[in-house]
Amino acid sequence: MTTRTTPPDSPGSPGSPATAGLVLAGMCGLQAGAALTTGLYPAVGTAGVVTLRLCFAAAVLCALWRPGLRRDRVTGRRWDRGTLATVIATGTLLTVHHLTYYGAVVRIPLGAATTVEFLGPFALALAGSRRAPDLARALLALAGVVLLGAGGLALDPVGVALAAVAGACWAGYILLAGRLARRVAGGGGLALAVGWGALLSLPFGVASGGAALLRPGVLALGLAVAVLSSVLPYSLQFEAIRRLSPRVFGLLTSLEPAVGALIGLLFLGQRLAAAQWIGIAAVACASALAARSSGRPEPRAQATDRQLTPAAEAS
């Protein structure tokens, strides 16, 4: 079997600034799109927003990658049952995540919803830790999350519960998307997963938004949300997941509560207490340390890299 190695300082290196930048850019797009959806909720409801986002995202991704329904267009290999099951499971998790996360954002501030949602990736990062420094970084991130959630603001318990479910779905997505990225070359697997998620959300969206989904203004805003929140972030993060272990990716996404809080402040006027700004600094520090340490892949990650020949990616 051919061994493929990546120079330590190249963009494809697990510890390179470019890989960490993919994760950060994806998070900024996700949170900016979440803020933009506030103009859609009154017209089409939460489920309508999710349907618009996924349908537009699926159309753009399928146009870009043109995935085959029976075989991988890049390698020519036929889809096996395991790959199709991973596509369906990934798309299902995306749909449930979107429905619960946007349901949370309607009820609690964006920063708080994102903070609670982060507990899913955090649990994933903590579960995969084997060394004391990993645990210390995860605990630092947790301390930042706790401070971000402080400030005396009363939170709707339903919103908090929905954000927690979204976090669990996001943790599952990290695991499944990593598996899908290794099974399918390029972005065809992601396009199919988002397409399945769009079909799954359609009945809920039509029931929620009805004919309002076809208004020109709603469609234009829905397209903008889809590009910001789905097409760009998922494409960037999907490539990052291909290069990183789930543990490292989960730790890098610990910056997302800080990004959500800042977007909420800049675009929605949601101010933060002093303790919450300290929390932002703690989470950012944990993320920076994780990005720096990710240049030392774990034995399991190294073994995975050795298998990423074109034939192995399609298997």
Rank of each mutant, 00 (worst) to 15 (best):
T2F: 04
T3F: 02
T5R: 15
T6S: 12
T6H: 11
D9H: 12
D9T: 14
P11G: 09
P11Y: 10
G15Y: 09
S16P: 09
P17Q: 09
T19A: 11
T19H: 03
L22Q: 08
L24Q: 03
A25M: 11
A25C: 13
M27N: 14
G29Q: 05
A32E: 00
A34C: 04
V44E: 07
T46D: 06
T46K: 05
G48Q: 08
T51M: 13
R53E: 10
C62D: 00
C62T: 15
L64F: 09
L64M: 14
W65F: 14
G68S: 09
L69Q: 02
R71A: 15
G76R: 09
G76M: 09
G76K: 07
W79A: 05
T83N: 02
L84N: 01
T86M: 12
A89N: 04
T90V: 02
L93E: 02
T95R: 05
H98A: 13
Y101V: 10
Y101I: 14
Y102P: 02
A104I: 11
A104R: 08
A104E: 09
V105Y: 11
V105S: 08
G111W: 10
A112E: 14
A113P: 05
T114Y: 03
T114L: 12
T115I: 05
V116I: 15
V116K: 03
E117F: 12
F118E: 00
F118G: 00
L119E: 02
A125N: 03
A127E: 06
A127K: 04
G128R: 05
P133F: 05
L135G: 03
L135H: 10
R137W: 12
A138W: 01
L139K: 02
L142Q: 05
L142M: 13
A143Y: 06
G144W: 11
V145S: 13
G149R: 02
G149I: 02
A150Y: 04
D156S: 10
A161H: 04
A163I: 11
A164N: 08
A166L: 08
W170G: 01
A171Q: 11
L176W: 08
L180F: 09
R182L: 12
R182G: 15
R182W: 07
R182T: 08
A185S: 15
G189N: 04
L192H: 03
A193D: 06
A193H: 05
G197S: 06
A198G: 10
S201P: 14
L202D: 01
V206W: 15
R215S: 07
R215D: 14
G217K: 07
L221P: 00
L221Y: 04
G222I: 10
V227W: 04
S230P: 12
L232K: 00
P233S: 07
L236N: 05
L236S: 11
R243E: 12
S245M: 09
P246H: 07
P246A: 09
P246N: 10
R247L: 14
R247M: 12
E256M: 04
P257K: 11
A258M: 11
G260W: 10
G260M: 09
A261V: 06
L266Y: 01
L266H: 03
G269P: 02
Q270P: 00
L272K: 00
A274F: 03
A275S: 13
A281R: 06
A282G: 03
A284K: 03
A284S: 12
C285S: 15
A288N: 01
G295Y: 07
G295I: 07
Q302A: 12
R306K: 06
Q307R: 15
A311R: 13
E313Y: 08
A314S: 15
A314Q: 05
